[in-house]
Design a binder for these strands. Structure first.
Length: 837
DNA sequence: AGCACGCCGACT
DNA sequence: GTCGGCGTGCTC
């Protein structure tokens, strides 16, 4: 038996499967998806089995055997292995990178070099010097030891150790290990049925009261119990239990335990709610598709507060009734305890939760519940799409428009597209839910001449549950405020609205969107702005550490009190940070209780949850924060939502900025008046006439989408054409420019026959819609023209006819890498980029 | 990615 | 004459 193995070396030359022999001793453990240790050149590496076969084309003498299998159960399924291949092609990454992305960090290989005692048989005749004897027996006693430890212990014998290594009395081997170990706990095992414990009780001396307590407890409860638990319940020390074990009456041994982040938390079980007419209307087709095992993608467009979650829950129930599994994806930021509670409440222990706030160990244990088939539902962020289920019935992506579903590191996959691909492979149903669907998804629900059946089916919910109205939105023109002499960041109407809430003891949510609007420090005398010495970007001010920090390379310097350029002391912090809003709030409303949520206040584990609970318990009047307050929160006493500056996103030069502005305003407006009390929204802006602001204020998604689609169509942007962003970086500009230009020239050459072919194949009779477009823009300097001392240039491919474009770019990159590798020039390819920088 | 093999400058 | 620089190429 032979196995094709992808080894753990993400490089062009090793990006293929290598053949290995499967030793018969391992044959029952080696499966497609197994993680194995294989000899590769002079060392041992981790690899993934991607195929098993009876024969091999490779020379028998070149074939080496698989050394070991790293897991009892393969961490990947053959379906995930295929998905990995699809991702590596689609997003142009190494196959091992795609496979690696599917596993929890705990399973990332750790390579360790250790020294062991080598072949002893022949060397024994040596007249061993005492030092040699000491070294050898030291290594023997430890079984294996790292070079560092050995040299530390025998610091003077360095030369001798070297000699022993070269003579073979000691050898160096490389071990493949996991990053993470399973957690073990000492557990007490009474003999089966408590046999013999009565006798033991009588044998004990009269004053061994504690030991007797233990025995009595175990006679009454004759089953295994964790040592710590036993010690707590009957208040005995560990030594008491140990002495019983020493006498052989009970057994004490290490047992693997799961780290459960929700341990001891009881979740109140909930029952399915009665669906509204509208909810039933969208639920029916989803339920039917799940019941019929039919792959289909639904785009569920439901306004904020329309009850999408209940539709998700009942769809999952349908899935479980069919004995199938479900994956629920939510943006990291909205995976709040509230959300987890709703799922755990409905499905109890069948739910595993995966999110970035878990420790590596906790995440690994949640993940293992899946491989062990202990759970049927996974709720998690982005990477939960790779949950190793084998019988998926349903994949739900909540807030599908969120740009955080695009992974920014390699593999640069979009979760939505991976989900659709995975669902195809398993004949599963996909539900994409949002109050503001991405234009990409929306476009896929529309009929086209070349596409009589659209790939996605649109389902709509226009009403909030209990017919609560959408809150009225007031647009405040900040230019007018300025004209009438109000220079503060609060307009008079927002000021009055907050004041009113304070009186009525109701709550306010204030959103300050800071993306692309970082706080920087400028000298008011000469205009000096502190720049990062390694990147082309100004440094960001962090109040918590009083430091200026670069977001790209981590460079930091202390805050300056005096301008380094002109020695002036007039230094000002620009960009309205949340801290400044907080300060101003306290100034104009003395005694106001504000909870501020931003990157500075939510880094600590559990802090996110803590602030939200405080706000829910009405320990504060105002919740002030960045985008994290816009998503999915639901507080009954919030009747006012204020957006301090709606334009910040709009002013970013990106073709999606109008879409992002619309989404943010709509989402945050949805936070108000979700319960009995009527809500109200104020949006402050310098561009009140902008269509994204206007449509958002009228809660009119469809009108916005139509308007924006027209613009995209005219400019040839997504969803009408797709993009690939290619970025080049090097320390020297002239070489960089030359190479980038060479790339683009070659790219166009390679593309040429494809475009011709298309013209020949399709005569004029074919509509413009289906014809193949391929345009290259650039190269130009990247918006951030230098990062970590490397200059950056980029080009953008705009195309239609997806498979061909990936092939063309792939070919060009392969051609280019042969030339660029020796120049240390880096190329990075981003298919369907979310930001063009 | 490592690591070895292989062809040209400053040293005992 | 040798030690060693890192350029090129391979790893089942």
């Amino acid at each position: 038996m032979y196995a094709k193995v992808i080894v753990d070396v993400p490089a062009k030359q090793t990006n293929r499967a290598f053949d290995y022999e499967v030793p018969s001793s391992l044959s029952k453990w080696v499966e497609v998806g197994s993680r194995v240790g294989v000899p590769f050149g002079p060392r041992v590496l981790q690899g993934f089995v991607v195929e098993l076969q009876e024969e091999t084309q490779v020379d028998a003498k070149r074939i080496k055997p698989i050394q070991n299998v790293l897991d009892l159960v393969p961490p990947l399924t053959s379906e995930l292995v295929s998905l990995g291949r699809w991702i590596s092609r689609m997003y142009m990454c190494h196959e091992v990178t795609a496979l690696q992305a599917m596993l929890p960090a705990a399973l990332k290989a750790k390579y360790e070099r250790v020294i062991i005692v080598g072949d002893e048989s022949e060397e024994q005749s040596f007249l061993d010097m005492p030092d040699i004897e000491a070294i050898i027996s030291f290594v023997k006693s430890k079984e294996s030891v790292s070079m560092d430890v050995l040299l530390e212990r025998f610091s003077k014998e360095g030369a001798l150790i070297k000699e022993l290594l070269s003579s073979g009395r000691l050898t160096e081997v490389q071990l493949v290990k996991d990053r993470m170990n399973t957690k073990k706990a000492l557990t007490v095992f009474p003999p089966a049925g408590g046999r013999g414990l009565e006798e033991a009780l009588s044998e004990l001396p009269a004053r061994a009261n504690k030991q007797k307590d233990v025995l009595r407890y175990l006679i009454e409860h004759p089953h295994a119990i964790r040592l710590t638990e036993l010690m707590e319940t009957i208040e005995v020390g560990a030594s008491t239990v140990k002495s019983l074990a020493d006498r052989g009456w009970i057994e004490l041994r290490e047992v693997e335990v799961m780290r459960d982040p929700y341990m001891g938390r009881a979740f109140e079980r909930t029952k399915p709610l009665t669906l509204t007419e509208e909810q039933s209307g969208v639920f029916a087709p989803i339920r039917d598709a799940v019941a019929e095992d039919r792959h289909e993608v639904f785009l569920l467009h439901g306004v904020t507060g329309s009850g999408k979650t209940e539709v998700y829950l009942q769809s999952i129930q349908q899935c479980l009734d069919m004995d199938k599994e479900a994956i629920v994806l939510v943006p990291e930021i909205s995976l709040t305890p509230q959300m987890v509670e709703r799922f755990k409440g409905r499905f109890g222990d069948l739910v595993a939760v995966l999110h970035s706030r878990l420790s590596n160990g906790e995440r690994y244990d949640e993940w293992r519940k899946i491989t062990r088939k202990q759970v049927k539902v996974v709720i998690g962020a982005r990477s939960a799409i790779f949950a190793p289920f084998t019988n998926i019935g349903l994949i739900i992506i909540d807030e599908e428009h969120e740009s955080s579903y695009k992974q920014e590191e390699s593999p640069k996959y979009h979760t939505r597209d991976v989900a659709v691909q995975r669902a195809k492979q398993q004949d599963a149903v996909v539900v994409l839910g949002s109050a503001t669907p991405s234009l990409e998804s929306m476009e896929k629900t529309r009929r086209r001449r070349d596409r009589p059946k659209p790939p996605f089916t649109l389902l709509t919910m226009k009403e909030r549950v209990a017919s609560r109205p959408m809150p009225p939105v007031t647009i405040v023109d900040m230019r007018e405020e300025l004209k009438t002499g109000n220079r503060s960041m609060f307009s008079r109407s927002l000021y009055k609205a907050i004041e009113e809430r304070l009186h009525k003891k109701e709550q306010t949510v204030l959103l300050l969107n800071r993306r692309g609007y970082a706080t920087f420090v400028m000298c008011r005398t000469c205009g000096f702005v502190s720049q990062c010495p390694h990147c082309d970007i100004s440094l960001t001010y962090h109040q918590s550490s009083h430091a200026l920090r670069c977001h790209y390379c981590g460079y930091a310097e202390r805050e300056v009190k005096e301008c380094p350029s002109c020695q002036s002391e007039h230094i000002r912090h620009f960009g309205t940070g949340t801290q400044r809003v907080e300060e101003e709030l306290s100034k104009i409303f003395p005694g106001i209780r504000v909870i501020r949520m931003d990157v500075d206040t939510t880094t600590e584990k559990g802090s996110h949850e803590k602030w939200l609970t405080m706000f829910r318990e009405k320990q504060a009047d105002v919740l002030l924060g960045t985008q994290m307050v816009a998503k999915g929160l639901d507080f009954p006493d919030v009747t006012l939502v204020g957006v301090i500056a709606a334009d910040t996103v709009l002013n970013i030069p990106d073709f999606r900025s109008a879409e992002r502005t619309f989404q943010l305003l709509t989402q945050v407006a949805g936070r108000a008046g979700r319960h009995e009390k009527q809500g109200e929204v104020f949006v402050q802006t310098y561009t009140p006439e902008h269509y994204s602001v206007q449509y958002a204020s009228h809660h009119d998604y469809i009108a916005f989408a139509n308007h924006e689609m027209d613009i995209r169509a005219n400019l040839g942007y997504p969803p009408y054409q797709r993009l690939i962003l290619i970025t080049f970086s090097h320390e020297q500009v002239p070489l960089l420019v030359r190479m980038a230009e060479a790339f683009v020239t070659r790219l166009k050459e390679i593309a040429l026959p494809y475009t011709r072919q298309q013209v020949d194949l399709f005569s004029e009779a074919v509509s413009m819609d289906s014809s193949f477009h391929f345009d290259v823009l650039g190269p130009v300097a990247s918006p951030i023209s230098r990062i970590k001392d490397r200059y950056r240039f980029q080009c953008v491919v705009k195309y239609r006819g997806e498979d061909l474009a990936a092939e063309i770019v792939g070919k060009t990159v392969a051609w280019f890498e042969e030339r660029s590798a020796k120049e240390k020039l880096l190329v990075s390819v981003d298919v369907d980029p979310q930001y063009l920088m």
